[in-house]
Design a protein around this nucleic acid. Structure first.
Lengths: 362, 362
DNA sequence: CGTGGGTGTCGTGGGCCCATCATAGGAATG
DNA sequence: CATTCCTATGATGGGCCCACGACACCCACG
């Protein structure tokens, strides 16, 4: 024992180990471990005493040793898709930030921390961190990262319905088709005759499902599709695409934009063409940003509820990690929320749909 | 050895350990370790063979064991301040997202991953993860997290000049005072007579330095300060404060807003009071968001260059971790960038400052 | 009244997780 | 026999946990 003491002193003068605490408290290593972890059956006096000594010595258990022994690291990977060199795209900023924030909080509340891992990370980096499980955002079909993780026996929960036969443990997503159909109906109700779509060229599930839903809706109501697609990760391309859409001979009288910056892009394009919103052009875009509450005019947005998604994803993952029989279903659909503002209300609000009021009221 | 083999088989059927690789390749454990890590002096044939076998078995070295042995985890903490329950504030979304993105990329390029750790994390969470060092965003004076980390001998680099005598290893910041003075001069040059400030009630360094710089500038040019402060973490309070500022009897004819959403808030308030921008009111705000390029009118913004900051912070931290004699100084000041748009140009651009052109040109 | 067995409470020893590294050892060659 | 090379052995890092051991106490039986 004294040998251990000595060798430890030599190795790391700054940090105290469990051995040092045991020696200082006059008990065994096991007793220290049990006292600090609330395990075993020890008299409260011993427990208190050990805790006191540990505090005095500034003892912090080595995370590495604990992880090695228990097989649990308390770390959850947050894998974000990458376009080009940078992790997560510009268009997803607000969504991603909100989602990550909620996920961080939820994980923290259950004693876990999040590790950011871009999908294009070098193998050696993310196989070099001990994860208990991983959250994957919008995994592509046959995502090599996911299959590798699953092969290692780690639970994987995805934000976004997994494409193809990706073997994720669970997933959470919005009902994107229903959301698009709801918006199109909303615009049609507001008087839109020809609804256009600003969409992306990428092949992710969100873009694909939304575009398909649009095309099917068009077919159902007998409208020719009017849409422009652009690479969503390029912040400049959006403005150009918005311009193209409004410059078409079959110019739409309402537009839904799938990505966050589309609102301002479309608004700017409309101004260039002298179109008044909402009189000449109805506008809706998918965004989590609150700037659209204060634009001129305020723009109707679709919120994907990233906070609920982030929370749900983490809960599912931790349930899987801890082997909790999921009281949650393994496939969760989070409802979207349409925040109706001026840009999508041609008729002055409530005038025609509400019951008549007394003339005195504004 | 056969006993070890057996016990391993029983323990974790899915994952192969270094023992299994050694057995399968018919060499010793050391040889496997050396072959995979490029150490020692081994014949290339052996090296290749070992690698091949390791690949075939899907061997991944245990991160926990390696961390325990080497004392390095390859993990960097990213500590974010919290307001209320949620990590990082709404007003810092774009800044934080950009900064975190750059930091993630920079860390990755050097083989490190980032762990998100809200400052209010329970002790047991962030002492439960093995960190090699930590990035702290805007640490408050006497931040307990920082002192604890430093006490453990871990390098800490802060984004934002540390308040008080916080013992950080290094820091990176903008020259906020110079930035504010530059903006005020810019507005004065554009014809502003009375410049107002939209600031925060929080005590962080950014808010403090900026406000002080404003007050000093006012004193120097002999203008009465006109400012409103609000709790920056409350997204609704900003709109109210903007309104208050423009409702004052000594209404300013130019305003600088310290926080991201102030641009739209001020624009909306200006419209309510029938003020034209930039004719009746000049506007600048500090923001990383590109929406201000497409507002009506486009708004001049100050960029704090979060990507450069995120990169610099991580480089400094990893230099410290790896004991590299910093070729970078330990205190870095990143220049800000004023992106001048219509909202701060009262006189039509270039007309009066450029040499006269021939009448035919637009 | 004395002692052996039963029952509990507290606490300890040593092995284990897995990879790394220093050093000792062995084989081949000059 | 000496010198290169390469490989094997064993210690190490630090905390957790299984399986016991030590000790006290109580009851019953001789």
């Amino acid at each position: 024992m004294s040998r251990a003491e000595t060798s430890r002193r030599g190795s790391r003068p700054g940090r105290a180990g469990i051995r040092d605490v045991a020696a200082a408290a006059g008990v065994s290593i096991t007793t220290v471990s049990d006292a600090l972890n609330g395990k075993g059956r020890l008299p409260d006096a011993t427990r208190r005493h050990v805790r006191e000594v540990a505090d005095r010595l500034g003892y912090r258990p080595s995370a590495a040793a604990r992880t090695l022994r228990t097989g649990k690291s308390g770390l959850i990977g947050l894998t974000v898709t990458t376009y080009g060199d940078e992790p997560f795209t510009f268009t997803e900023f607000a969504y991603f930030a909100e989602m990550a924030r909620a996920a961080t909080s939820a994980a923290l509340a259950r004693g876990y921390a999040l590790v950011i891992l871009p999908a294009t990370s070098r193998h050696d980096v993310w196989s070099n961190v001990a994860l208990d499980g991983t959250v994957v955002i919008d995994p592509s079909d046959q995502d090599p990262v996911v299959s590798e993780l699953v092969r290692q026996g780690l639970p994987v929960v995805s934000d976004g319905r997994p494409a193809g036969s990706l073997p994720v443990t669970a997933w959470v997503d919005n009902d994107h088709e229903a959301a698009v159909l709801g918006i199109l109906d909303h615009l049609a109700d507001a008087g839109a005759r020809r609804i256009g779509l600003l969409t992306g060229t990428t092949t992710d599930t969100y873009t694909h499902l939304s575009t398909t839903a649009y095309l099917r809706w068009c077919e159902r109501v007998g409208q020719d599709p009017v849409y422009e697609a652009y690479p969503a990760h390029d912040p400049c391309a959006g403005a150009v695409a918005a311009d193209r859409l409004l410059a078409r001979p079959d110019r739409p009288d309402a537009v839904y934009g799938l990505f966050d910056p589309n609102g301002t892009d479309l608004l700017a394009a409309a101004r260039r063409y002298g179109l008044r919103v909402p009189d000449d052009l109805l506008l809706v875009c998918c965004s989590e940003s609150t700037v659209y509450a204060n634009t001129e005019p305020p723009i109707t947005t679709l919120s994907l509820k990233p906070r609920r998604i982030g929370t749900a994803v983490v809960q599912l993952l931790i349930d899987a990690i801890e082997g909790v029989e999921s009281d949650h279903p393994v496939e969760q659909v989070i409802p979207t929320e349409l925040i109706v503002r001026t840009s999508s209300q041609r008729r002055s609000p409530r005038t025609t749909v509400s019951p008549p009021r007394s003339p005195g009221q504004a």
